[in-house]
Write a protein that binds this DNA or RNA. Structure first.
Lengths: 196, 196
DNA sequence: TTGTTACGGTAACAGTCGTTACGGAAACGG
DNA sequence: CCGTTTCCGTAACGACTGTTACCGTAACAA
């Protein structure tokens, strides 16, 4: 049991190393050797944990999805009501602090890498559909009398907005401080009649 | 004069080749040889036109900016009023057809490449600031009585939304058809009291 | 035509890439 | 205690990278 636990922990550590390299050095320098250096091991360990580089990236991508999914679920459960949950869930997807900013960079890097990788692009699509469904459900709870198309339109607008804002803030933190991001989200929620 | 015109034309052709490779093969395969192959020449020509690979990417990035800037300006001038101009300008930034979708892919690729390239990231920031200023000006014309902070907030929301939507639609065209993108923009404009 | 210059294709360079093979060390069962 | 197996670091492979040097060729001046 300790064996598989170690293997899983190593896989997580290597995934974290992938995120680190992706955020700090970009997609072009996301090499097996760079990941191994960031993880404090050699390429031998990396290639023994994963059959090849693409499998390593795919695992890191899936683990990132799972991590954020758990975080979002926790935020949703901790919120006092559906509108507070919606706001909290949207805010966590933006670049409000350095950690979230790096996560946005990683997110963007995976999306750019997915252009040529069928498995990564399929992972993105599945992930994105789940994300859209979650926000749609939150909006449906926040405005139970809305028709489905209004819910869908608002959900699409809100997730697009947070995605674009996260990219902007990740690329230019000084131009998009946390206060601007938060006021934008609140203004959008107010415009869509979803303020708490 | 024909010399410099040829040189400029070749630089534009190589930039188009950069876009093509970036959209079809992604950032990882954006090599000098791939660009030369897409342009139908050898690496010798590429390296005679540009001192190195980064200069080639930077020129392609700047030319893409200039091209879209001219297109946006033309749309703005052709619009009958400020609200129609705002809508047209926002719509061109999304992935409504295959051409715009590829452009969104290229846009995303450059942004991902800018993570490690100081010149590219500065180019993005300058470009993005100009884009935000333009949309803010359009909103100011469309709603002259709004206070500045409301204009800024709406502008930020709208450009973030279109940016995110373009990325989503570029990565998953079937999930985000043009009709969904357009209805989302119209819903957002209506929500922000900017409908025409 | 002849000499000169600019252009661009060819080939090679050193370096890095993903991946593989091998060998030593550590952990395990007996 | 030893034999076996698992683990992982080391070193190497061929392929590919950006970049450079070289050289033939076409265009121009005289």
């Amino acid at each position: 049991m300790s064996r598989s636990a170690d293997r899983s922990a190593q896989a997580s550590m290597l995934s974290a190393a992938v995120w680190s390299v992706l955020a700090e050095q970009g997609l072009e320098r996301l090499t097996v050797r760079a990941v191994a250096a960031a993880a404090g091991c050699t390429t031998g360990l990396v290639m023994h944990r994963f059959p090849n580089r693409r499998a390593l990236l795919l695992h890191a991508r899936r683990l990132l999805h799972e991590t954020t999914r758990e975080r979002v679920s926790a935020l949703e459960e901790a919120a006092p009501g559906p509108r507070e949950a919606l706001r909290a869930v949207l805010l966590q997807g933006m670049a409000l602090d350095e950690r979230n900013r790096q996560e946005a960079l990683v997110w963007m890097g995976f999306l750019a890498a997915a252009v040529t990788d069928p498995e990564l692009i399929e992972e993105h699509r599945r992930n994105n559909a789940a994300w859209r469904a979650r926000v749609s459900r939150l909006i449906g709870d926040a405005a139970p009398d809305w028709p489905a198309d209004r819910v869908a339109s608002a959900a699409l607008a809100l997730i697009s907005m947070t995605e674009g804002m996260a990219a902007y803030a990740a690329a230019d933190p000084e131009a998009y401080p946390p206060s601007a991001q938060m006021s934008m989200v609140d203004a959008a929620l107010a415009a869509f009649s979803l303020s708490h």
